[in-house]
Amino acid sequence: MTSTPFNHRNPQLNRHGELNHLLSTDGLSREMLTRILDTAVPFTEVAEREVKKVPLLRGKSIFNLFFENSTRTRTTFEIAAKRLSADVINLNINTSSASKGETLIDTADNLAAMQADMFVVRHAASGAPYLLAQHLAATGQDHIHIINAGDGRHAHPTQGLLDMYTIRHYKQDFTQLTVAIVGDVLHSRVARSQIHALTTLGVPEVRVIGPKTLLPTGIERMGVQVFHDMKEGLRGVDVVMMLRLQNERMQGALLPSAQEYFKSYGLTPDKLALAKPAAIVMHPGPMNRGVEIDSAVADGGQAVILPQVTFGIAVRMAVMAMLAGA
């Protein structure tokens, strides 16, 4: 009937189609994703040098704006920035729920006045970094780059990218793979970033596995196959990507208990045996052992969970260098 009367320009690209912010893996081309992964490769060896630093972002100020607590993610961004020789300022902003949005815009304006070059933003509300990007654009400040370090349930693009880096490292060719994402997809920004990246990079079969209470309506429209039976879903896969299950999910009516969840959807050696013998197991951390993953798997030979962390720093360096590098 009517066509949608609106044009939505992808807010993470500038007018030349180059990456200005990293807000989501959604809407980035295969070439762009591949370029980020390629850029990350040489950064992995920076960590092995005696002086773990390159001068790419010397003199740049990077602000970690964390409206939601996260020591792990913040630390990896901090390390990445420091290895690029940037100045890093960490801000943990406690938010009262009433004034979250205001705080976000006000804080950004204040920091912009301090000649910030980049914001790394984590926020509990889906879309918060988009609001920030729009605000910067509207106020002529979009020389400041934004990296989304996780917004609500929406996206966690650097996690998605480091996962892609890990998969490419172990499996080389995306176009021959079957990948399963297991667990609480509904509340997971990681899952969404993984799905967009996997489908864009040409993975022919992406599966999501979980109970109906933890899978969003319409998820199949994102190009995935839905499985409720974990054994069926894991059969023949090359990559198993586990999601973290927050303890608070047990408090509502989404799940009866951690024990029952583990029985149906916890990754045990038995279930993993259904995947291909060379399958790798990934987890974004922090893990709940005995809830979504058995220790025997987490510490087993197929787990690549610690390499994920190492690659994560290189990928974040790559993104920062691409956005703010001269």
Partner: peptide
């Protein structure tokens, strides 16, 4: 609306 867009954007849905 609880559908494709809410799923993609990570917004809580109203069915």
């Amino acid at each position: 609306h609880d559908g494709e867009v809410a799923a993609r954007l990570g917004l809580a849905g109203i069915p």
